[in-house]
Every structure is written in C-alpha cells, then in structure tokens.
C-alpha cells in the first residue's frame, strides 16, 4: 500500500502492465522522454525502452489508427490523447473503426486498445482544455467508456481496461489528478493522501469494468454521478445534512443499471450530476433508464445537474461549473414533499 495521487496510480497501472505483458505498449504525444504533460507516463520509457513507450507525431488520427493496427497484430496499446478536447481528429478512427472492427469482421478481428485522455474543467483551461465529451463515446455501439473518481479506482480500472479485449475510452478527470475537489476553488487544495481512496496497493489488482460503486449509502435520495462531481455531490449533501446515497457510475458503458436502479427504487428520489453539457448528455441516458425501471417508486421527478449547453468559457469557469450551489438547488427540489 502506498499513498498515491491519481497520476501516480495511473502510472503504476501502466508500469505493472508493461512489466507483466510484453504486448503492452504506451504511445502518445510527449509521453516518452518527458513522461506526459501531466506526468502520467513519467519514467516508463526509461524503464521499458523506446519500443514500448513511444513519442508520436502530433496526429490523434494517426495515434488511434496506428494503435488499431498494432492491436490487430497482437499488441495491447495504451494510447494517450493529451487532452480529451484533442481527441476529435481521432474520432473517425474510434467510431468507424475501433468500435466496430469486431462486429464487422464477425469476431475475427478485434483491437484491444485503451485510449486514456484527461477531461473536465476547473483548471482555467478555456474551451479547449476543459471538455467532458464522454457522451459522444457512450453513444457509439462497441466502445466501453470509463471514468474513475479516485486513485484506487483509477489504477484498478486502468488495469482492467488494458486487460479487456474490447476497446476502452478511459477519461481521467484532470481536476482531481492531485486531490479530491469539492467544487470550491477558493479553498486550499486537499491532497489525495488525506482521502481513503488515496491508499493504492502497489501490485496488480483490478476494479471491474461495468460495476458502479455506492460511495455512501443513505435513505433520503440517490445521487448518481461520476468523476469530479462525485466529490462535489458528497460535499453538497453533507452540507445540507441529507442522508444521500451516492453512486459513482465509474463505467458508463456497460452501465451498471442494477446498482443504480435498486438504489433509486429504494430511496424514491434521484439527482444525476455531471460536468458535461446537459443536452443529450450522459445524464439523459441515466435519467431515461431510471425512469423506465423505477417509475412506480419515484416520489419526485428525476433531476439533472450539468454544465450549461455552451462551450467551456475561460472567464466564467465557476459560473459554468456545476458547483455546490447548483447541486444543492436540485437536491432541495427533489426533497420537497410531493
């Protein structure tokens, strides 16, 4: 066991997989000598060499396509896209190729590629370093989509993703790389060492893909969330003194609707919280699923808290970010007696 932040946890996952499995390779922009702009791959090229950890040209389409080709030839590539905002030049290769190769070749070809990419805002990154595009991938048949909310899960889920024979788009909420964030930017930063999920085993372990986690059990209502917003939701519910059940989705595809729906069926109230834009966001899928399964148990309409349907503006970061005020309003509304 060691105290690790999310960056170290992810690094440890790749280190272990590079060490255990000679078919694993890591590739991306600045990931080799430099160790990545967020330092997630630090030291890996030195340890495993330039044929296992590759600095690539700045061409996301090329990175994904080359990863697919490598995977078809037996490698297990872990591709880093420097920011999720820069994944779109690779989108065609992901949507038209990576997602469907197994299907169109009747299972004869497949590409076990993991695409890691930092997402989300709260770092003053403006419209091109802040996006949360998970819904664009969750909507595509054939992709697994994962987003951890803490170092323990980050390592376990990344190892599970690399070992998975299906392609995984692995979003890393960069605002919480170094510590949990409860949505209040003016408060001093909290490190992961102060959080139980900052305890990360040294060795190999997995967190299963397709399993949500109940991070707090409660009876008043269910908050369904993921990534950075897990922490914002927890802090808000605590402040309001609500006995909320908080579910960290962790895997958007495949979705653990059993865990989510049995909780809502029991509490009868539900708020969905994510940072991505609201319209046709992943919250819409969650809401529809819950409504279909839990309609007769609901005591209030399901509410969604999300980023506004605008690009992420540099100057209005905290007016954009769905912070505690916006979450609190939804929680209160859902708790009003019918």
């Amino acid at each position: 066991m060691a105290q690790r932040n999310m960056i170290h946890a992810l690094n440890s996952a790749m280190d272990i997989m590079l060490g255990r499995d000679p078919s694993v390779v890591v590739l991306g922009e600045d990931v080799g000598y430099f160790g990545g702009v967020f330092r997630c791959t630090e030291g890996l090229q030195r340890k495993y060499g330039e044929h296992r950890v590759l600095d690539t040209p700045i061409a996301e389409g090329g990175i994904i396509a080359a990863a697919i080709g490598m995977a078809v030839n037996g490698l297990r590539p872990v591709a880093e896209i420097q920011f999720a905002d820069y994944i779109y030049p690779g989108y065609d290769q992901i949507v038209s190729e990576l997602a469907r190769l197994r299907y169109r070749s009747a299972g004869e070809f497949f590409a076990p590629v993991t695409v890691r990419t930092p997402s989300g805002g709260g770092i003053r990154g403006g419209q091109t370093h802040s996006q949360s595009p998970e819904a664009l991938f969750a909507h595509v048949a054939g992709l697994k989509v994962v987003m951890p909310s803490n170092p323990y899960d980050a390592k376990g889920l990344l190892i599970a993703s690399i070992e998975d024979d299906d392609p995984v788009i692995f979003f890393e909420p960069k605002r919480i790389y170094n510590g949990p964030f409860d949505g209040e930017p003016d408060k001093p930063a909290v490190p992961w060492s102060a959080h139980p999920k900052g305890e990360v085993p040294d060795g190999h372990y997995t967190v299963p893909i397709g399993k949500a986690e109940i991070v707090r059990s409660g009876n008043d209502l269910t908050i369904v969330t993921y990534g950075t917003m897990v922490h914002v939701s927890e802090a808000t519910a605590r402040k309001l003194g609500l006995d909320a059940e908080i579910i960290d989705v962790r895997t958007m595809v495949p979705l653990d609707s059993d865990t989510i729906c049995s909780s809502v069926a029991r509490t009868g109230r539900c708020v969905i919280v994510h940072e991505a834009t609201r319209f046709a966001g992943f919250g819409a899928e969650l809401s529809a699923t819950i409504q279909e399964e839990c309609f007769w148990n609901l005591q209030a309409p399901i509410m969604r808290v999300a980023g506004w349907d605008t690009p992420y503006p540099h100057a209005f970061e905290w007016e954009y970010f769905p912070g505690q005020a916006r979450v609190a309003k939804a929680l209160k509304t859902v708790m009003e007696p019918a």
């Binding site: 403006g126 419209q127 091109t128 370093h129 540099h314 209005f316």
Partner: peptide
C-alpha cells in the same frame, strides 16, 4: 478576459482575433 476582451471572456490568453485587421480567430486545436 476583461470587459474589453474581444473574445468576451471565452478564450484562453493569446487566442486573439481581429476582424478589421483581417486576422482570423485562433483555435486551441492545432
């Protein structure tokens, strides 16, 4: 990103544009 920002606070620093000067808006995407 102040009250006279040509981008109305939407862009990171240095992502200028200037229509009359015929200089196009800068994207963060390379």
């Amino acid at each position: 990103s102040n009250t006279r920002d040509m981008c109305k606070g939407r862009q990171l620093p240095v992502m200028y544009h200037w229509r009359e000067g015929r200089i196009f808006s800068i994207s963060g995407n390379l």
